[in-house]
């Protein structure tokens, strides 16, 4: 699946998430993942939206997002020019017989053990989405009881910033 990662800066106001989500639903765009959180500017939130490029025209998504008044900036994060991370918490079956094998898998993937019970372990893994999928594939045979993923977040590499241009734009003046 070809995915595209969009970073979307939005005004930190009520209803903005609904507006963006509503746009995707009414235009029949498919979201693979969506992560939202605050930024260094408390007026601005940042969404990282992963869309399925096969079913969704990414250029059209960008143009439509740009039309939303509360959206400040949309930028596509290109895989080779951006760092992308996703966090997962995995509760996996691990009895005394299999525990050491699970721990070995965790070590290989640099996943931390953050909880333990006689029958389970909880792993915390942060990595690129592909690597996370590989970890989950390795854990699957032991029995994944529960899984939660944050959705992808991304930043462009290098010194530049997504806010360089857009937020410096002159605010609209009264007409």
């Amino acid at each position: 699946m070809t995915t595209h990662t969009l970073s979307v800066l939005v005004e930190n106001k009520p209803g903005v998430l609904a507006h963006v989500a509503g746009l995707f639903s009414r235009r029949a765009f498919n979201i693979s993942s969506l992560a939202v959180g605050p930024t260094q500017d408390d007026q601005v939130s940042r969404m990282t939206i992963v869309v399925d490029g096969a079913s969704t025209p990414v250029g059209q998504v960008t143009e439509q997002l740009n039309k939303l008044v509360r959206v400040l900036k949309v930028a596509e994060m290109h895989e080779d020019a951006a760092v992308e991370r996703e966090l997962a918490l995995v509760k996996v079956r691990a009895d005394p017989a299999t525990r050491s094998q699970v721990l070995e898998v965790a070590a290989v993937f640099h996943a931390e053990i953050i909880d333990m019970s006689p029958a389970t372990l909880v792993l915390e893994a942060t990595s690129s989405p592909g690597k996370l999928d590989a970890l989950l594939a390795m854990l699957e045979p032991y029995g994944v009881c529960e899984l939660v993923r944050t959705g992808r977040v991304a930043l462009a590499r290098g010194a530049g910033s997504i806010t360089d241009r857009s937020l410096a734009a002159v605010p609209a003046s009264a007409s």
Partner: peptide, 12 residues
Amino acid sequence: WPPAMELPGYQV
């Protein structure tokens, strides 16, 4: 009047 408008994301 006119009041200051806050439309940082709206561009014509």
